[in-house]
């Protein structure tokens, strides 16, 4: 069996302790939570951290709760909890859509939202989900806490605004009236990464789309924020033609590369189809026409 290279290990007892350890240990240190992205990389020796900080005991980072006009999700919240959360299902059903198709149920017992977002694999679903619902990421570092939008969060391939000495603490989802959302994914097999996936959220007002959020997985070097399509939808009544047009923008504005999952033209096609489907379901949910 493939086995990781040697490293030192510390079990964190507080967020401050993690920040301090990261500072002390520098770039060789990595935080581990569920470990389902990091451990396989370590076994394949594609990742060789010298110092591993285990944050699984920081239960204070595990929660999904309503706080004023927001839902706050702790970074250590596991996929299974996101899947089962009635609060999320009520306000942002796209989380449940996504969580039903992220990895498999056993992996979902361990993997966390923080780990998924910080791994920032372009094919990862929750990055698109959080982008679509206009989430904000709360990051703590040696200089204190800061809050960034998902656009700011995604810096590049496998790179986020969470720097070497930082820890993602929380994700905050703004609550607004008239919301509907959906996540659509095509994969080669259950449990596989997406060939392409689309997350969409809409906020309806008086029969019109007051605002929209759309993001794509697996069709670019990082999560694709479809701001041009969001602009197109703003203020318009939802129609099939409009969704098709948004899909066309998705096909154009994504930048997939060919790999074992498919060629570029197919991925562009999927980006369009899935954007259309996600928008249709998001609107229909906002209008309470489907669950």
């Amino acid at each position: 069996m493939q086995t990781p290279a040697s490293f030192e290990y510390e079990r964190a007892t507080s967020v401050d302790g993690v920040i301090a350890a990261l500072k002390k240990r520098g770039s060789g240190a990595r935080v581990i939570a569920g470990g389902h992205s990091l451990m396989p990389m370590m076994k394949l020796r594609l990742a060789k951290p010298e110092y591993l900080i285990d944050i699984n005991d920081l239960t204070e980072l595990s929660y999904i709760r309503e706080e004023g006009e927001e839902i706050a999700i702790g970074a250590l919240t596991r996929h299974v909890e996101l899947l089962n959360s009635e609060l999320l299902a009520e306000h942002f059903p796209l989380f449940r859509d996504a969580e039903q198709v992220i990895a498999d149920p056993v992996v979902r017992n361990r993997g966390t939202i923080g780990g998924s977002l910080c791994q920032a694999d372009a094919a990862e679903d929750l990055s698109a989900v959080c982008s679509a619902v206009k989430a904000k990421a709360v990051i703590r570092g040696a200089d204190g806490e800061r809050t960034v939008s998902m656009e700011e969060f995604h810096v590049g391939p496998y790179t986020t605004a969470v720097g070497a000495g930082d820890l993602l603490i929380e994700v905050r989802l703004p609550l607004r009236a008239g919301a509907g959302s959906a996540h659509e994914k095509v994969e080669r097999r259950a449990g596989d990464w997406a060939i392409a996936a689309a997350s969409a959220a809409v906020w309806m007002d008086g029969g019109k789309i007051a605002e929209a959020g759309i993001a794509l997985s697996a069709v670019g070097l990082t999560t694709i924020h479809l701001s041009r399509a969001e602009q197109l939808l703003k203020g318009k009544a939802p129609t099939d033609e409009l969704f098709v047009e948004a899909g066309e923008i998705a096909s154009t504005d994504c930048s997939p590369s060919a790999d074992g999952r498919g060629p570029v033209d197919y991925k562009r096609h999927l980006a369009g189809v899935l954007t259309g489907r996600a928008l249709r379901r998001a609107v229909s949910r906002a209008l309470h026409q489907e669950a």
């Binding site: 095509v186 080669r188 060939i195 999952r261 498919g262 060629p263 197919y266 096609h269």
Partner: peptide
């Protein structure tokens, strides 16, 4: 017959 090959 992957989705990509069938689509092609």
């Amino acid at each position: 017959c992957t989705p990509a090959r069938v689509w092609a």
